[in-house]
Simulated assay, not measured.
Amino acid sequence: MRGQLGMWPFRRSNKQVAVPTLTVDTTEGDPTARALREAGERRDWGAIRDLLTPVTDPDEHAFYLWALADVDGLQDWIGEWIEAEPRSTLPVLVRGAHAVLWAWEARTSARASQVSQDQFKEFWRRLRLAENCLDEVIDRDPDDTTARTFLVTSARGRQVDRTEADRRFDEVVTRHPWHRIAHEQMLQYRCQKWYGSHEEMFEFAREAVAKSPAGSALGHLVVVAHLEKWLDLPVGEDEEYLDDDAVRAEISAAADHSVRHPDYRRRPGWASVHNTFAMGFYKVGDLRSAAGQFEVIGDQVTAWPWQYSNRNPVIPFVACRDEAMAAED
């Protein structure tokens, strides 16, 4: 799942674990995403334009924009590109996408009660900049699903009502019905920790998966919903919730419809989907299925969802992988 904005505190563990040597690759091993980040870090907007222009698939385009938008300091030079190519919407889109992630950087991942007024003011200022840019892109190119997807993301920060949030999401899926990042972000909006409830969250996830074609990556939404509920429960009740045959069966069915279906194909951003299934299977005690996901993943650990267990996601990833793979021996 794309960098979970507004993360709540993780589940702490009393176990002392040595820090492994793996690192999180924000590009998920994708060469185009890596090239985009490198171009952003050296402020080479010409290379960015050349890398992004050929990308026509909405899911891939959004994934690549997210990878680029997370580059530090982009706000310091993006204006040069906008001035150099005023007729292009791409640099405006890049500025808007970056400003969404930049806004959450100002807010931090703490709960609202722990965020200062100055942090909130800067958060909202950056979100206004983001939405102004994204709205401009849409005015000039109404079918730009990436701009609309980042507006789904910013909906939580702007505290828009359900009608507006649904409208933003619908504008994406009417153009690309199974847009993964848009679904991921709308699921977050419907979480109890934001503006929804557990019931609304599960209704959204289950309906999306049921309607999605066989082999769709959207199957992981069901896993996310169960992990979100697990995280919200008191210690003791949380593990009891996951030790349930119905939860185990639903996650397994989602995998059969998704990553374990013969029609499934790995596409840019695939690693976070498999990491989510790996954590889900591990948490419900299905170590054989978890091992199957870890075999696909290899060393391609992603921050989401492991950062829900530890601020250093590599630690729970390696611990769970070792246990799952040992159970296979």
Rank of each mutant, 00 (worst) to 15 (best):
P213Y: 01
A214Q: 03
A214T: 00
A214I: 00
A214N: 01
A214L: 00
A214S: 05
G215M: 03
G215T: 02
G215K: 04
G215I: 01
G215W: 02
S216E: 03
S216L: 04
S216Y: 00
S216C: 02
S216T: 02
S216A: 10
A217F: 07
A217M: 06
A217R: 13
A217K: 06
L218R: 06
L218W: 04
L218P: 02
G219N: 06
G219I: 01
G219R: 04
G219D: 06
G219C: 06
G219Y: 02
H220T: 11
H220M: 12
H220S: 14
H220C: 12
H220R: 11
L221H: 03
L221I: 03
V222I: 15
V222C: 10
V222F: 07
V223Q: 06
V223E: 05
V223P: 03
V223T: 12
V224Q: 14
V224I: 14
V224S: 08
V224M: 14
V224R: 10
V224L: 10
A225K: 07
A225R: 13
A225E: 11
A225F: 10
A225T: 11
A225W: 08
H226F: 09
H226E: 05
H226R: 04
L227N: 01
L227F: 00
E228S: 07
K229D: 04
K229L: 12
K229Y: 09
W230N: 02
W230M: 08
W230A: 01
L231D: 15
D232G: 13
D232W: 09
D232T: 10
D232L: 14
L233Q: 03
L233S: 05
P234Y: 02
P234T: 00
P234S: 03
P234C: 03
P234D: 03
V235S: 11
V235M: 13
V235G: 06
V235W: 11
V235Q: 13
G236Y: 00
G236K: 00
G236F: 01
G236C: 04
E237A: 07
E237G: 07
E237P: 00
D238W: 01
D238Q: 09
D238C: 06
D238S: 14
D238A: 12
E239I: 12
E239W: 07
E239A: 13
E239Y: 02
E239S: 07
E240S: 12
Y241K: 05
Y241W: 06
L242C: 10
L242R: 13
D243L: 12
D243F: 11
D244V: 09
D244Q: 12
D245Q: 15
D245V: 15
D245K: 13
A246H: 14
A246L: 14
A246K: 14
A246N: 10
V247Q: 08
V247F: 08
V247T: 09
V247E: 04
R248M: 12
R248W: 13
A249H: 14
A249R: 15
A249F: 10
A249E: 15
E250Y: 06
E250K: 09
I251P: 03
I251A: 11
I251G: 08
I251H: 07
I251E: 11
S252G: 13
A253E: 15
A253K: 13
A253P: 10
A253I: 10
A254G: 13
A254R: 11
A254H: 08
A255N: 05
A255H: 05
A255Y: 05
